[in-house]
Design a protein around this nucleic acid. Structure first.
Lengths: 293, 293
DNA sequence: CAAGTTCATTCCAATAGGTTATGAACTAGC
DNA sequence: GCTAGTTCATAACCTATTGGAATGAACTTG
């Protein structure tokens, strides 16, 4: 396994296209094709399905993607820290985020931050909530952008709310309620539920249970996904229904539909997170930009 | 940065010798020399001091070493998981440990486990307690071997005590009490203390405070180290005194001496840790071997 | 002071990754 | 249903990097 193989794999998984990934990385398409094949051979499994001129992630590929991202992030963060702490290079702020927030929150905030303070650079890392919290705790990430935070993590981090997003039901497209404009949570009391795993999204599972209990039923959680994308895939393929903030509809979700919840109107927070006790003013400024200032 | 550079760096740091590391990795000495030089150039800092025919880790190198190990571990664990879950390869048990336990506990346990059950392989990973707990929580590590565990982590893991080790005072060699056979903890009430950081060794700091408070004083913690080795270096260079289990004397600690504590006789646990709720029988068997069965 | 360390440098050979060109499979538009 | 235009894979070739052997420079040791 080599770092460039991981980079190639991640790019191809993001673009869902070898040629597009090759273009983005400014290498030739065969180079990418071959390196991915090498990687697949080494790990002993296909990471992509090649059907009908398109590539799709296999289950193996989907489970590998967040790990590959983490490894690449850790490597980059480690070199940055060395350069900054011992090589006297200018400070780079490291910002982690969940994919749905990239366009709406991260991109504009980083743009305005960069305009205002030329002296600092910002590096972006797409990571799960769990991975972000761990890295903030360890001082490798300066700011994270994620959903609800479990109590046990509040010991390490300080949070500020960036925005709230209404919770919506996510249904397979052929679900009996998929055509509705809005539905009440109680209408789903008999359905099978797909949730996010507690390991990757601390607190989310509990949040789901609390919502349902307030409507007088206990959800039957039949599957737990490690990423938002995996959860949407699970729902689209009929494993069950789920609850997600409306902004998650940003993600591709073919075969699944988002239906706003009429009652109860529950909001999920989007939080900017930093290490508790830190006082770096540039981190504070970056957080302000995320809050819209 | 390339994986083989990280491997070379870790080996050289462990052997504190380029030639020895080259021998272990079965490559020529110049190859290693050059790759490390390349890595140093990329991160913009020297990782080793070359003085008088010997190499020593610089501060930068010391802070980089655990991260390099983590990145290598994560990469290996990820490929193993892919091979096992999707490539139908035989299960490899992944065992993490702190360096002082390698000779006394890990090596004999793994040896006897391998003899008994040929069907399973064991992979070893030297990681900080914090890193082990994270990876056990995420299902990437099957068993960890570490010191005391903080309450917040007990949510995720189940523990069994492997052994107890008496706590000892660690003093600079020129300390006024360094020649003593044994000392009482209260005799250190006026000294500056070096402790282990809570991020890498959850619970240890609190443990130190509790011990001292039971003797009627509050320790003045003047420095926090991220690794056992760093802590020993800090003590040896005169930052202060520390408290460590006696088995940590296994580590090289030139310039520092371990003096048993006469009162109070406090024991630190060595714990074998697995994921809460897991029921893999081979993991149970490996734990049994660690417990000496 | 000589012999034996250790790490760095030089030079050459082998390998691995990159590029261009081409092929095979499929989609889309007429 | 055919052509034009995709997309990904393969083949042939090139070059850049890595590793190895030999050598040099600095230091320790007997």
């Amino acid at each position: 396994m080599e770092f460039h193989q991981l980079r190639y794999f991640v790019a191809a998984a993001e673009e869902l296209s070898v040629t597009a990934a090759a273009k983005r990385l400014r290498v030739s398409q065969p180079a990418l094709s071959k390196q991915i094949a090498n990687l697949e051979e080494e790990v002993g499994t296909a990471l992509f399905d090649r059907i009908r001129q398109r590539i799709h992630l296999t289950d193996a590929g989907r489970s590998f993607l967040p790990k590959a991202r983490q490894i690449l992030c850790d490597a980059e963060m480690a070199t940055q820290q060395l350069r900054e702490n011992f090589g006297h290079e200018k400070r780079t702020l490291r910002l982690g985020f969940l994919s749905p927030f990239l366009d709406d929150i991260v991109a504009p905030a980083v743009k305005s931050f960069r305009r205002q303070s030329r002296r600092h650079d910002v590096a972006l890392f797409e990571l799960s909530a769990r991975a972000q919290l761990d890295r903030i705790r360890d001082g490798e990430l300066d700011v994270g952008l994620l959903g609800n935070v479990a109590d046990e993590d509040r010991r390490h981090v300080a949070t500020k709310r960036v925005m709230r997003s209404r919770m919506a039901a996510v249904l397979p497209i052929d679900h009996r309620l998929a055509g509705r404009k809005r539905i009440a949570l109680s209408e789903l009391s008999g359905d099978d539920f797909v949730s996010l795993s507690d390991t990757y999204f601390p607190g989310r599972r509990q949040f789901l249970f609390e919502m349902c209990e307030s409507q007088g039923f206990e959800p039957e959680v039949i599957e737990e996904s490690d990423t938002l994308t995996l959860m949407l895939v699970a729902i689209a393929t009929g494993s069950g229904v789920g609850l997600l903030p409306e902004h998650s509809a940003k993600l591709p979700h073919e075969g699944a539909v988002f239906v706003p919840l009429s009652a109860p109107t529950v909001h999920a927070d989007v939080l900017a997170v930093r290490r508790r006790g830190g006082s770096d003013p540039s981190v504070t400024r970056l957080m302000d930009h995320l809050l819209g200032n």
